[in-house]
Amino acid sequence: MASQGTKRSYEQMETDGERQNATEIRASVGKMIDGIGRFYIQMCTELKLSDYEGRLIQNSLTIERMVLSAFDERRNKYLEEHPSAGKDPKKTGGPIYKRVDRKWMRELVLYDKEEIRRIWRQANNGDDATAGLTHMMIWHSNLNDTTYQRTRALVRTGMDPRMCSLMQGSTLPRRSGAAGAAVKGVGTMVMELIRMIKRGINDRNFWRGENGRKTRSAYERMCNILKGKFQTAAQRAMMDQVRESRNPGNAEIEDLIFLARSALILRGSVAHKSCLPACVYGPAVASGYDFEKEGYSLVGIDPFKLLQNSQVYSLIRPNENPAHKSQLVWMACNSAAFEDLRVLSFIRGTKVSPRGKLSTRGVQIASNENMDAMESSTLELRSRYWAIRTRSGGNTNQQRASAGQISVQPAFSVQRNLPFDKPTIMAAFTGNTEGRTSDMRAEIIRMMEGAKPEEMSFQGRGVFELSDERAANPIVPSFDMSNEGSYFFGDNAEEYDN
């Protein structure tokens, strides 16, 4: 993207840094990872977990959730003011799984939030270390993106479920800051804005008074975040219109849905970061690795190297396929839920299948599930090659597409044709070009129609051997075009429920 120079890199967003050079960025990201790792080690000690239990991804998720809940100030305040039966607002906890007599047992633990905050700050040299908290939120978000298709949420806001490739980060909490905003897809931002506008339509006082002023500035800020994701002048001009509207209503909703559809071809720039579970960072720190000293990046080879040398386990339900569970977590670790499966298959070195073909449910185990038949197995999170994460949407291309997802959002900077089903997408653009945004709409449609099938995206960008740390010898991959490109292809993934 041309304006790259004016933006802070995501590592800076990730670490609240002012302008830093590459070495400083690597050190501050490393410091953040160190903090998460030290916190995780301490929690495993508190909970008396064995090494194996500490490497269980379900335990990692519970521990991450506990610290996120302990620092969720708004919710904590709300819980104190609106006490609900049987919930102690000062405590947080969740299921911890232990191996007892050759069987997995679930144990519900409860801790004072104050105590968890103390352990977290102690692991982070006394700081609140917001960057580390956001990092864990993005890992949870990436896992949700890989596990669930947001059909219901899309339909509720009037969008087409086939636009799911635009929904990265749709389950990120509001408090995820600049680093969170960077990884949100165009569809996620559109959905947040539509929800806001709908509230304004239904509630006369939404934009009024002292609160209304705050609401208005939040609305304009979200519009600017979305505008910054678009790469064409016409899309940005249309966002200006939406932002400046005196009284946002149905016309703005129409414009936003139009823009979301246009992003299936004229893709937005959305950041991709490899955020790993805390149970990967903990053992690495415990083994003596100093992330701050060595430096770390979320968008280069580092996460690949770390996963190459990590042992992570997962509980497996009786009829689940461990290899499929591994694929789910591998995609989440690489922030690749909406990437082209052919690119992923090449990088991973084994075939990556669409969601609907995987015999696996989510990673988390519900409290009512029976533990008797639970097994555990090693997650295979290694890769054959590594590639640089991208934040450009890439230019655009036609490809055989599917009944489910009709476009992709690249996660890796790797040369390819970008699949999208042009006739299906263009069919949504018939007729409606009147109104105050008509010239911009016409211009956007013209650009979409001009998108050429034979153009290559990320020209000359390749993948790298894991021994090639400096990215000196790019390998331009070859793809098996007979395979499906979309992950949520004609899909039956479970729906995400809060």
Rank of each mutant, 00 (worst) to 15 (best):
Q4W: 12
K7G: 00
Y10P: 06
Y10I: 14
E14W: 08
A22T: 15
T23K: 05
A27C: 01
K31V: 05
I33N: 06
Y40W: 09
M43Q: 06
E46K: 05
D51M: 10
D72A: 09
L79M: 13
A85L: 09
V109H: 06
K113F: 11
R117L: 13
W120R: 02
W120P: 07
G132T: 03
L133P: 05
I138P: 12
H140K: 03
N144H: 02
D145C: 10
R150W: 11
R156F: 01
M163G: 04
L166W: 03
Q168V: 08
S170K: 06
P173L: 06
R174W: 09
A179C: 12
A181Y: 10
A182Q: 08
V183W: 00
G185C: 07
V186C: 10
E192H: 02
I194K: 09
R195D: 05
I201S: 07
I201C: 13
N205Q: 10
F206Q: 13
G209I: 01
E210D: 14
K214N: 13
T232F: 03
T232N: 13
A234C: 10
A234T: 02
M239Y: 07
Q241P: 04
P248M: 04
G249W: 11
A251M: 08
E252W: 11
L259M: 14
L259H: 06
R261Y: 04
G268W: 03
V270H: 12
A278K: 08
C279E: 06
V280L: 11
E292G: 13
E292F: 11
S297V: 09
P303A: 15
L306I: 13
P318E: 03
S326Q: 10
C333V: 10
C333Y: 09
S345R: 08
F346K: 06
K357C: 09
S359N: 14
V363L: 15
Q364C: 11
E369F: 03
M371K: 08
R391Y: 06
G404C: 11
I406L: 09
S407Q: 12
T433D: 02
R441Q: 09
A442S: 15
M447G: 10
M448A: 06
E449Y: 00
E454P: 04
E454I: 12
S457T: 06
S457E: 03
F464D: 04
E465A: 01
E469N: 06
P474D: 01
D480F: 13
M481I: 05
S486L: 14
E495S: 13
E495T: 13
Y496V: 13
D497T: 11
